[in-house]
Design a protein around this nucleic acid. Structure first.
Length: 418
RNA sequence: CGGGGUGUAGUAUAUCGGUAGUACGUCUGCUUUGGGAGCAGAUAGGCCGAGUUCGAUUCUCGGCACCCCGACCA
């Protein structure tokens, strides 16, 4: 993509009332725009990152047999009355139309997915399976904060699994722990992300969260480095300040953000909707459920919090908006530079490498500063200087390492490094 | 939802009960061309509603928005 065509612009300064690092950098770099507190537009660059994250999650969900669906945000009041949550969930957005009909704007989708699958499940032979979606969720946060980490409308992947018995559900649940770990690994935050024991609610002792260490977080966890696990502060006392796995008491306190969670729902939502199946003896049994969520925007913001530096965003290639930032210097008045940049651009593009080509007529300093701010992993400079040397200058955004390589190395390096 | 704070141009700010100023940005032109460059010109503003007043951006009241702390929550 040509940067001159990008309709967004970067800014030197972040809005003064924006405190969160993720929001400051993402707004400055033109990845997101705030419409109101906790409600953000994803601009071209930001949306590319969000879509990359979405695709990683999609691949991993598909790998465990998840079937993608897309459920509505607008959900009839009756479904929410059925689970009792119309009256008990105080962050539920309720909307009514001119005829007085009331709906919920979905904060989660159990009330939709359970009646949905009820139409298709009748025998033990229809189970198990899982369905997931990417959906905007609405939660009436009394206080949206921390940039895109806590919004009122946010993109979430939610998956629901359906089983004949608890053991089967638990086996899937265990598998999901690994799947989630892989998602966070692929997004470049695994080193700081811990499987965390958290309160389970009415049907299970624990739920599990994936917590990423960052000062921007609002949770406190206690990490057992021996087991590479953590315990959420909310249950640390009932856990007797010890690791649930090894019992060790050598726990390290950290501030973290919850990027994902998995719940054993068991019959919590299948029962109210009478979601049942006939077992081998023809007897009715209630379907056992699990659910698994990841907040995409929160995950994106967390990557910014963890990897961003004083110069700007730093993306791992797996979710970077582009793989290469091709920065031409002086191309606007030097035809040979322009021609060389175009050649490289075409070569990368035909090799399926996503390139953002800064073809604008700006000074070097401005281009470099913006390049650092946007945070594409590999910067390639083409200028009169590089042309004379017969080489290209490359810079690794994460390490700041700069080197000169010739044409044949350029492609090799990109592939070996990333 | 409780407590605190802030609302002046795209951003950041100044002043003032009487013509609202500066910087950055943006736009135009020229110069410059390896770390947010220079010159010239242009652009654009008092959150909303009442009240006090000859006159309100300024004072009073109400509302709304945004930010922070807490509670709640992915």
């Amino acid at each position: 993509m040509l940067q001159s065509k990008l309709f967004t612009k970067t800014r030197k300064e972040a809005p003064v009332d924006e405190v969160a690092k993720n929001a400051r950098l993402l707004i400055r770099a033109g990845f997101v725009d705030k419409l109101q507190a906790g409600v953000y537009t994803y601009l071209p660059l930001g949306l590319r990152v969000l879509k990359k994250i979405e695709n990683i999650i999609r691949e991993e969900m598909d790998n465990v047999g998840g079937q993608e669906i897309f459920m509505p945000s607008l959900q009839p009041k009756e479904n929410w009355l059925a689970t009792g949550r119309w009256d008990t969930m105080d962050d539920l957005y309720k909307v009514s139309d001119t005829s007085g009909r009331e709906n919920a704007l979905g904060p989660t989708h159990e009330e939709v997915v359970v009646p949905l699958v009820k139409q298709f499940v009748s025998s033990y032979r229809d189970l198990p399976f899982s369905a997931y979606q990417f959906q905007n969720k609405f939660r009436m946060e009394l206080r949206a904060k921390s940039g895109i980490l806590r919004g009122r409308e946010f993109m979430m992947k939610d998956m629901y699994s359906f089983h004949t018995n608890e053991a089967d559900m638990m086996a899937y649940y265990e598998k999901m722990k690994g799947v989630y770990a892989r998602v966070f690994e692929r997004a470049g935050i695994c080193a700081k992300t811990f499987l965390t024991f958290a309160s389970g609610g009415s049907f299970s002792k624990y739920s599990h969260e994936f917590q990423t260490i960052t000062p921007a977080g609002e949770d406190t966890i206690y990490i057992c480095d021996k087991c590479c696990l953590a315990v959420n502060k909310e249950i640390i006392e009932e856990q007797k300040n010890s690791c649930p796995q090894c019992g060790g008491r050598n726990l390290r306190e950290e501030t973290s953000v919850e990027v994902g969670n998995i719940f054993e729902l068991k019959t919590k939502y299948s029962a109210p909707f009478n979601l049942s199946y006939k077992d081998e003896e023809g007897k009715d049994q209630t379907v056992i459920m699990g659910c698994y969520g990841i907040g995409l925007g929160r995950m994106l913001g967390t990557v910014v919090e963890v990897l961003g530096d004083d110069k700007g965003l730093v993306w791992p290639e797996s979710i970077a908006p582009f793989a290469v930032h091709l920065v031409e210097l002086g191309g606007a008045y030097d035809a040979t530079v322009r021609a060389e940049a175009e050649k490289i651009y075409n070569e990368f593009t035909s090799a399926d490498v996503e390139v953002l080509w800064d073809d604008r007529d700006l000074r070097a300093g401005e281009k470099f500063a913006e390049s650092d701010l946007i945070g594409i992993p590999l910067r390639v400079v083409v200028s009169a200087k590089t042309l004379t040397s017969g080489k290209f200058e490359i810079k690794d955004r994460a390490t700041g390492e700069v080197s000169m390589v010739d044409h044949s190395e350029l492609f090799k390096i990109r592939h070996s490094k990333f």
